[in-house]
C-alpha cells in the first residue's frame, strides 16, 4: 500500500504541528495538538520495527530459558517446567498483537527466572544472570525512541 504508513504519519504530524496548532488560540488545546503531533512521530518510529523487535526479543528470551531451566530445576521444578515449555514455544504469527501477547508472557517469565537465579550461589547461575541483564539492556535499547530525554 502506498503511500507508506510512515510517510502518512509524518505528513499528518507535520500538518498538526505546522498548520492546525498555530491556527488555534494559544493555550491547552494548542499545546495538546502539538503534543499529539509528537506522539505520532513516536508511533512512526515504532511502526517500522514493531514486529522485528518483538521477534528478536522473544527468540533471545527463549534461548535464556532453555539454559535457565537446567540451572533452576533442582530447587524450583515447577519454574523449570514453565521455562522448558516457553523455550520450546514459537511465535504464533507476525501479527503485532499476538507477538505482544507472547512477549508479555515471556517478559513475565524472565522476572521469575531472574528472581530465582539471584538466590542461587553458583557460577552457572551468575552466567544466566549476566545473560538476563544483557537481554534487559538489549530490549530497552530496542524500545528506545529518539525523542526520549535519556
Amino acid at each position: 500500500m502506498k503511500p507508506d504508513p510512515q510517510r502518512m504519519i509524518e505528513v499528518t504530524a507535520a500538518h498538526l504541528m505546522m498548520r492546525t496548532a498555530p491556527a488555534l488560540e494559544k493555550g491547552y488545546e494548542q499545546s495538546s495538538v502539538g503534543l499529539l503531533a509528537v506522539l505520532l512521530l513516536a508511533v512512526r518510529e515504532e511502526y517500522d520495527r514493531s514486529a522485528a523487535r518483538r521477534v528478536e526479543e522473544n527468540r533471545a528470551l527463549r534461548a535464556i530459558f532453555a539454559d535457565g531451566a537446567r540451572v533452576v530445576r533442582e530447587g524450583a521444578p515447577e519454574l523449570a517446567k514453565r521455562l522448558e515449555a516457553a523455550a520450546h514455544g514459537e511465535d504464533p504469527s507476525l501479527v503485532i498483537s499476538e507477538l505482544e501477547r507472547t512477549n508479555a508472557e515471556l517478559r513475565g517469565l524472565v522476572i521469575d527466572l531472574h528472581a530465582r537465579i539471584e538466590e542461587i550461589d553458583a557460577p552457572e547461575a551468575r552466567r544466566i544472570e549476566v545473560a538476563i541483564w544483557a537481554e534487559l539492556v538489549a530490549s530497552t535499547e530496542r524500545r528506545r525512541l529518539s525523542l526520549g530525554t535519556f
Binding site: 503534543l35 509528537v38 506522539l39 513516536a42 515504532e46 530497552t140 535499547e141 524500545r143 528506545r144 525512541l145 525523542l147 526520549g148 530525554t149 535519556f150
Partner: peptide
Amino acid sequence: ALSGWLMGNSQDRA
C-alpha cells in the same frame, strides 16, 4: 500516552 512511551523507556535505561 507520550510519557508512557518516552519516559517509560528512558526510566528503564536510567
